[in-house]
Design a protein around this nucleic acid. Structure first.
Length: 883
RNA sequence: AGGGCUAUAGCUCAGUUGGUUAGAGCGCUACGUUGACAUCGUAGAGGUCUCCAGUUCGAAUCUGGAUAGCCCUACCA
């Protein structure tokens, strides 16, 4: 077989992806005889393009899914996309803008159609990118939040909630995005500190003499035309006389009351607060308490409307601010300007400052839904990983606010509410009403708003499986097993899915939720378009291959943390891929393509039993690590098994003990080495599926591994598959210590090139016979020509020394010039060991330790003391021998 | 302001119920290639586990406090 010196990921990844898809290995149908394993892919927006966050998120899910698939589960990893109301509408509007058109000119229906076309053309780009990473989703089930079925589910849940009295319409202050001209939810708003000014403005007061005035402090003078009161703290002695009087809104004839409310903090600013109920959430509450009118002074684009004096009317809010500040200066009402840093709300979507705005919106009453969701986490039905997120989850649910679900957009699920033009009654239902349910009138007008995108996303555990119908899919796959997502959408998405699943199914949507790390640059800043510090995963895949990208990310990223990633880090995964490829090349070259024979494990030479044992230990470890979602730890276990155990020791031993002469021993060696290698490939398959598949098809078929048509559906090794040889493993590792001990001496004394070294060994009879049983191998691996066993140092003469548990090894000096260096080295070693011995001695002399420590710890400590003491003695002898 | 997280080698981080001489990768140093891999190997240097106090026979690990950094939530007229 042709075995190129370099691995070609690009060619290989395409080959095997096509094979897996052609063989339909990732699809799933309900099968009562098998256990299901269901994972929900967090649906990317149709506007998304693959970034490293997706990369890590998808890699984690793919590892879990592939592991479970190889472990015999009926795996359904459900893929799909989200229609992304705001993001998509922005995209389409942008392209319209380039043609000099607006959506208003186009009209609602035509614009909607344009969005559909945009989605058809661009909506699957992200999906194709996920496939490049090797995502083993059930691609036959790809779902879409605006598809017919999923839209029916949205309609169903809206109507159900409405009928249960959980959907209502209310006038509230919403977070208004003046650029997109829509309300956005609290969760789509972020705060940022900016530099601003605090303006101290004097309002004239009447009934207290000519010059009477009251000074308020505000950062937003432009909202003054919406003022309907001035508030002071009821206990603030400075302002007692003002309470109940009236003040004049500057530039107007409007007089507003001065009221007392405990919300005001006397120590802040001037202690006087202007109350603008229509433009500030806190003022809205104060206004409610005092039955103040609400004056909306802004247009939808945040310019000042007709309720404002003519000289600022039509000006943008920030422009108006400057105009007013100038005006107030002229009228000497601006007492001072203090520069300040304060945080202001920004729209996550429009990236502009949010304007609190009074409007009629649809809401979902959340409190009744939140209770069961809290319960589910408390009783362990829903588990978060890492579980530190539980507190955050509880805190949000316990203080939950009603969810504003209407959006003033055109792209999305239109709110299924019809207003009767005759009697103003509200109609809804599963079919579009033709007549008013209240008065029978036929003049019905549908609400012009659409639903928040998350109002369809929260059904993701249900709607793709056919809900609200009682389908076989739903019964089999729901509840799902694990959700992997970013902690930033714990409220927007995770908690809401939980609530709606409990509401409709009385079950949690998933058992476990894993929060993947956030990917940052080396300075710890999040990847962002504006910073331009991101790494394009597709480019990295192009240069290193998907396997290298996957492996690098997974080994670097624990759950729920923050991972600092740079382009050069992908060298790490790349090297690992190269290492495995070359190990396979070595086996191919050294052992050939021979048909393999069953391995008689119990009769294997010591180092091979050790190797099998290493595989055994790794399978146990990986099983435990994957089960507890420690994917990065499992990746490290795999890495060490492959590199240290298999390559550095297994392959090196094979080089020395495989004779190439068709002996029975050769057949056994070839068979066990390939057997272990196949075991490692199987363990590696979930992590680096493309390379593993390629090599699996290249290695000879082994009679002791059952083979399917593809590695991805072959069995994942568990500790029961792999025999354990703890004793042999322990013996071989003692010999490894001797080998390392010799290498260390040779290296430090720069004797690598010397081939005729005689090694003198002082040890007990048991160790001697162990070593003699592997004599030739130990000699070759440590690079000595001969081993002599001695009873004392005197038998050797002047020499270099190294000590270990139960043995001392000596190499004769080449010449006297080595002595000073060796004396320094031994002295340092002596110091280190004597420190340990002293510590142990102190411990053993401590009566309360001897009394209280568990017996096994005591035994261990005593043994260690004996061992280290003898090493100490041996070192002292060596040092003394130099005189 | 409230809540949470983190602090271990020059860098990035492991260290799962407290118990061998605290580990890995990268980086660094020395040596080693006539074929698995220089995308490599062997060996080495480098840590009073942020600080203080406490619990314990025993603390990187548990408790309290301090300091520093990060994140979240709320709000700042």
């Amino acid at each position: 077989m042709d075995f190129p010196t370099a691995y070609n990921p690009e060619k290989n990844e395409k080959k095997w992806w096509d094979f897996w898809i052609a063989e339909d290995l990732f699809s799933s149908t309900p099968d009562a005889s098998k256990k299901s394993f269901t994972v929900l892919l967090p649906p990317p927006n149709v506007t998304d393009r693959l970034h490293m966050g997706h990369g890590l998120n998808v890699t984690i899910q793919d590892i879990l899914t592939r592991w479970k698939r190889m472990s015999g589960f009926n795996c359904c990893w459900l893929p799909g996309t989200d229609h992304a109301g705001i993001a998509t509408q922005m995209m389409v509007e942008k392209s319209l803008q380039q043609e000099g058109k607006t959506r208003q000119e186009l009209g609602r229906e035509a614009f909607f159609q344009l969005c559909v076309e945009w989605k058809d053309k661009n909506g699957d780009i992200i999906i194709e990118q996920l496939k490049k990473l090797g995502a083993s989703c059930d691609w036959n089930r790809q779902a879409y939040t605006m598809s017919e079925g999923l839209s029916a589910a949205v309609r169903r849940i809206f109507v159900s909630l409405y009928e249960d009295g959980l959907v209502y319409r209310g006038e509230r202050l919403v977070n208004w995005d003046p650029v997109l001209q829509t309300a956005v939810s609290d969760d789509e708003v972020y705060n940022e500190e900016i530099n601003g000014n605090m303006y101290h403005i004097a309002y004239h007061v009447r009934g207290m003499g000519e010059a009477a005035q009251i000074v308020v402090a505000t950062t937003r003078p432009e909202t003054m035309f919406g003022d309907t009161a001035i508030a002071v703290h009821p206990d603030d002695e400075r302002y007692q006389a003002f309470i109940g009087k009236e003040a004049q809104v500057p530039f107007t004839d409007r007089w507003i009351p001065i009221i007392a409310d405990t919300y005001v903090k006397p120590e802040f600013g001037t202690g006087c607060l202007k109350i603008t109920p229509a433009h500030d959430p806190n003022d809205f509450e104060v206004g409610k308490r005092h039955q103040l009118p609400r004056i909306d002074i802004l247009n939808p684009d945040a310019s000042l409307n007709e309720k404002c004096p003519e000289f600022v009317r039509g000006q943008d809010r920030f422009q108006a601010r400057e105009t007013l500040v100038r005006g107030l200066k002229e009228s000497q009402q601006l007492q001072k300007t203090v520069s300040t840093r304060h945080s202001v709300p920004f729209s996550d979507r429009g990236k502009c400052i949010i304007e609190p705005r009074l409007s009629l919106q649809w809401y979902v009453k959340m409190q009744p839904l939140a209770g069961p969701a809290i319960q589910a986490a408390a009783n362990g039905d829903l588990r978060l990983h890492p579980d530190t997120w539980q507190k955050t989850y509880y805190h949000w649910l316990e203080n939950i606010q009603d969810w504003c679900i209407s959006r003033q957009l055109w792209w999305g699920h239109r709110i299924p509410i019809w207003y009767c033009q005759g009697c103003e009654a509200v109609n809804t239902g599963m079919v579009d009403p033709t007549a008013c349910s209240s008065c029978g009138g036929t003049e019905l007008q549908q609400d012009s708003d659409v639903l928040d995108t998350w109002f369809s996303s929260w059904l993701w555990p249900l709607s793709p499986f056919g809900w609200p119908e009682k389908t076989e899919d739903l019964a089999y796959y729901f509840p799902t097993d694990v959700l992997v997502t970013g902690a930033d959408i714990i409220f927007l998405w995770v908690a809401r899915m939980t609530m709606v699943s409990l509401y409709t199914q009385q079950k949690v949507p998933f058992r476990d939720v894993c929060f993947n790390s956030i990917i940052c640059d080396k300075e710890g800043r999040k990847f962002s378009k504006t910073l331009g510090n991101g790494i394009d995963p597709l480019q990295v895949i192009e240069s290193y291959g998907a396997d290298a990208v996957r492996f690098t990310m997974i080994q670097l990223a624990p759950l729920g943390g923050r991972v600092k990633l740079a382009l050069e880090d992908f060298e790490h995964g790349n090297r690992f891929i190269n290492k495995i490829w070359n190990a396979a090349r070595f086996l191919h070259g050294k052992l050939g393509d021979r048909a393999l024979v069953p391995v008689d494990f119990t009769a294997l030479p010591l180092p091979y039993q050790w190797l099998v044992h290493e595989l055994h230990v790794a399978t146990a470890r990986m099983d435990q690590q994957l089960s507890s979602y420690q994917m990065h730890e499992a990746a490290s276990t795999l890495y060490q098994l492959m590199w240290q155990s298999f390559c550095d020791w297994g392959v090196e031993v094979t080089k020395e003990s495989f004779e190439g002469n068709n002996s029975a021993s050769d057949w056994q060696i070839a068979s066990v080495v390939y057997w272990v290698f196949e075991g490692i490939l199987r363990l590696a398959s979930p992590f680096i599926p493309f390379l593993a598949e390629e090599l699996w098809h290249r290695i000879p078929v082994h009679p002791q591994w059952e083979r399917a048509s593809s590695l991805v559906i072959s069995a994942f090794p568990t500790p029961t598959h792999v025999p354990a040889f703890p004793e042999a493993a322990q013996q071989w590792s003692r010999l490894q210590e001797v080998i390392s001990g010799v290498r260390s001496l040779k290296s430090q004394m720069q004797m690598e090139k010397k081939k005729d070294i005689v090694l003198f060994l002082r040890c007990d009879a048991a160790f001697r016979s162990l070593l003699e049983s592997q004599l030739a191998l130990v000699q070759k691996l440590s690079g000595v020509a001969k081993v002599r066993f001695v009873g004392s140092l005197q038998e050797v003469g002047a020499c270099l020394a190294n000590v270990g548990p139960g043995w001392s090894l000596y190499i004769p000096l080449v010449d006297e010039s080595q002595i000073p260096k060796e004396k320094v080295r031994i002295s340092a070693e002596l110091q280190r060991v004597s420190k340990i011995v002293l510590g142990l001695e102190k411990k053993l002399q401590n009566a309360s330790f001897v009394q209280n420590a568990p017996s096994d710890v005591l035994v261990q400590t005593k043994a260690q003391f004996a061992n280290m003491s003898s090493q100490l003695t041996s070192l002292q002898e060596s040092l003394a021998s130099f005189g």
